[in-house]
């Protein structure tokens, strides 16, 4: 494998300030522009190993986080711009890092309709993917982070991109977004986990992002076949269990967790058919990460038996 030109060899802050920080995330090129120091720090920590874009690469998503003028400077607010257009109300400067990450998610959520997009984490081992859809707060990111820290390849914490007509998942590896108690849970789970800035008092509480490109193949672009669809749910009171679930109901639930299933119309239905036909479906209720990782590992091993 050729040695990659990664951001670690560059001065991320200087490039960011000049609007020349461009890197590849799965099939897309992001260009980021900001003069905010906290963004440069976070990006240096979490994106250092991302492949830098080559000169002349087409930029899919041009993102800018900027102070909006004297008044916004006094109010300590910044603005998220996509293609130089303001898409959201100004946000407190201390939440800028989390907002940048959300904004980068938003770019994919509202575009990228060449794929069936599920709101799901996706992890892989032995070249096979487990897709984990879930509503915010279900515990999918916490489980995804823990799996990543125990050797699984993180394909995405947020979007499972499925090319229609296939049951494959296109990698879109970016930092894992953790909220509130999950931040300390993952810090305690693995003291070596690397985090970006903590954004406090956001509409979701405290938010921090964990470095997710932890395996040698994490930036490979080849789509990998999915073989399990797992619906994780954290519960501090319910019994921990892994149970098979109906494929039919999983179809409808996965459609519910899709960003663009309805938008795609009949082709979305056909894409979901292909995916559901190819995966085994399970519910996972967990409270203990070690137990959950063991259960997911055993499930994966069982499912890959011919």
């Amino acid at each position: 494998m050729p040695l990659r030109n990664t951001l670690s060899s560059k001065d991320v802050g200087t490039l960011l300030k000049a609007g020349e920080l461009s890197f590849r995330v799965g099939p897309y090129i992001y260009n980021l522009h900001s003069s905010l120091g906290q963004l440069a720090e976070g990006l240096s920590e979490l994106y250092a190993d991302f492949p830098a874009a080559s000169p002349g690469d087409f930029v899919d998503y041009a993102v800018s986080i900027q102070r909006g003028g004297p008044l916004s400077t006094i109010r300590r607010k910044v603005q998220f711009l996509f293609d130089n257009q303001g898409s959201f109300a100004p946000i407190p400067i201390k939440q800028a890092y989390a907002f940048m990450e959300w904004g980068m998610n938003w770019c994919v959520s509202v575009h990228a309709n060449e794929y069936l997009k599920l709101h799901a984490a996706a992890v892989a081992r032995d070249g096979l993917v487990i897709v984990m859809p879930g509503v915010p707060g279900a515990g999918k990111s916490t489980l995804c982070a823990a799996l990543g820290l125990t050797g699984w390849r993180i394909l995405s914490d947020e979007h499972a991109l499925i090319p229609p007509g296939t049951s494959r998942v296109v990698p879109l590896c970016r930092p894992v977004s953790l909220k509130n108690e999950s931040i300390e849970t993952i810090r305690a789970f693995d003291r070596s986990a690397r985090f970006g800035p903590v954004s406090k008092d956001t509409h979701k509480g405290a938010v921090a992002h964990m470095k997710a490109d932890l395996t040698p193949d994490c930036h490979d672009q080849e789509a990998l076949p999915a073989h399990i669809m797992l619906f994780p749910r954290y519960s501090s009171v319910d019994r921990q269990e892994l149970t098979a679930r109906s494929k039919t109901e999983s179809f409808v639930l996965a459609a519910y967790h899709s960003f663009n299933y309805s938008l795609m119309g009949e082709s979305g239905f056909a894409a979901m058919q292909t995916l559901i036909d190819s995966v085994e479906c399970y519910d996972l209720v967990y409270r203990d990460l070690d137990w959950a990782i063991e259960a997911v590992g055993q499930l994966h091993d069982r499912a890959r038996q011919p």
């Binding site: 109906s246 494929k247 039919t248 109901e249 179809f251 409808v252 459609a255 299933y261 309805s262 119309g265 009949e266 239905f269 056909a270 979901m272 058919q273 559901i276 036909d277």
Partner: peptide, 23 residues
């Protein structure tokens, strides 16, 4: 419309007119 029948007690039905999916 279109059906997705996994051989279970329920079936997914896609309504081509409305674009809605039903269980």
């Amino acid at each position: 419309g279109r059906f997705h029948d996994c051989g279970e007690e329920s079936v997914v039905y896609f309504d081509l007119q409305s674009g809605d999916t039903h269980l």
